[in-house]
Structures are given as structure tokens and as C-alpha cells.
């Protein structure tokens, strides 16, 4: 996997500039002074820090390694998986959505772990896979019961439950 290097001072300055622009134009001129003063002050602070970081970036010209922990594909996959899981829970309901997402992720991680650190990984037999499936259902149903029945938090129902 290729190493990505970048000037992080520039990147943080860019993030600050984008944040500044998004929030600056989202301000409403009808806000009264007590409500407008605080965010405005913070935005000025963000602008100043971004400029300082930009100057620091120009002076240092240092490039740091970014996203260096593990596989970049799996970083992206992790972000997509979390978003997809949330959408599944929203549309299918907590139990059905979670069982689907949990099962896919569990077996995918087990497969990856087998490649990355075979000594620590689980040897997945048919019996073990069956046991895992049962345990996934048990864990999700226990959490569903605790949250919806004991803690009285009505979990998303979606199409199913």
C-alpha cells in the first residue's frame, strides 16, 4: 500500500477555511447582538488560526504521513459500513438491520484478521460460524430487550423491528 504524505498544516488550514466559509455564510443578519457576537468571534478566531497555519505550512514545508494506520481501503470501508449500518437500522429496524450489518462485518473482519495476524485469528469452521450467528442474534436481542423494555428507549422499527 502506497504511503500518503502531505503538509498537514495546509490541510488543517484548508479545513479551517472551509469551516469558516460554511458557517460565515450561514449567519443570519436578523440575529440580535448577544446571539451573533459569540459565533462571530469564534469565526474570526478560526480565520486567524487558519492564516497562521497556512504561513507555518509555507515556512516548514514538512510533509507528514497521513492515514498510515492499516489499510486505506479498510478505512474507507469502515466509514461506509458505519453509515450503511445507520441507514439499515433506520429503514429495516434495529434488530433486522443490525443482524445484517453485524453478520457481514463480523465475518469480513474474521477473514481480514486471518490474513493480517493469523496467530490471533479464529479458525472459522462451519460449526464456529453457526455459533457466531447464534451469538450475533443473542447479543442484538439482549440489547434490544434491555434498551426497549428495561431502559424504555424505543429503538427504530423501520420496516420490521
Amino acid at each position: 500500500m502506497s504511503v500518503v504524505r502531505a503538509n498537514t498544516y495546509f490541510l488543517v488550514a484548508l479545513t479551517g477555511a472551509i469551516t469558516f466559509l460554511i458557517f460565515w455564510f450561514a449567519q443570519d443578519e436578523n440575529w440580535r447582538r448577544p446571539s451573533a457576537a459569540w459565533p462571530e468571534t469564534i469565526l474570526y478566531g478560526i480565520a486567524i488560526f487558519s492564516v497562521i497555519l497556512l504561513v507555518q505550512g509555507l515556512m516548514l514545508k514538512r510533509k507528514d504521513e497521513i492515514f498510515s494506520e492499516g489499510s486505506k481501503v479498510r478505512i474507507l470501508l469502515a466509514c461506509i459500513a458505519l453509515l450503511a449500518w445507520s441507514l439499515l437500522v433506520h429503514t429495516l429496524g434495529f434488530v433486522v438491520g443490525s443482524v445484517l450489518a453485524f453478520t457481514l462485518m463480523a465475518f469480513y473482519v474474521a477473514k481480514v484478521e486471518k490474513k493480517v495476524s493469523p496467530e490471533a485469528a479464529v479458525d472459522m469452521t462451519k460449526g464456529k460460524a453457526g455459533f457466531w450467528l447464534v451469538m450475533i442474534w443473542v447479543e442484538i436481542l439482549i440489547l434490544y430487550y434491555v434498551f426497549s423494555e428495561v431502559l424504555l428507549v424505543p429503538l427504530p422499527e423501520g420496516l420490521f423491528f
Binding site: 462485518m105 463480523a106 473482519v109 474474521a110 484478521e113 479464529v122
Partner: peptide
């Protein structure tokens, strides 16, 4: 706990925790 179980459990707890 096997990693294959731990990672999805953390993901699920983040969703549950935020929702609740």
C-alpha cells in the same frame, strides 16, 4: 472477545448510544 465480534459490537454501541 474475537476481533470479528469486538469491532461490530463497538460499531453497534456507537449507534445505540447516539440514538438513545
Amino acid at each position: 472477545v474475537p476481533l470479528g465480534f469486538l469491532i461490530p459490537s463497538i460499531a453497534m454501541m456507537t449507534i445505540l448510544g447516539a440514538y438513545s
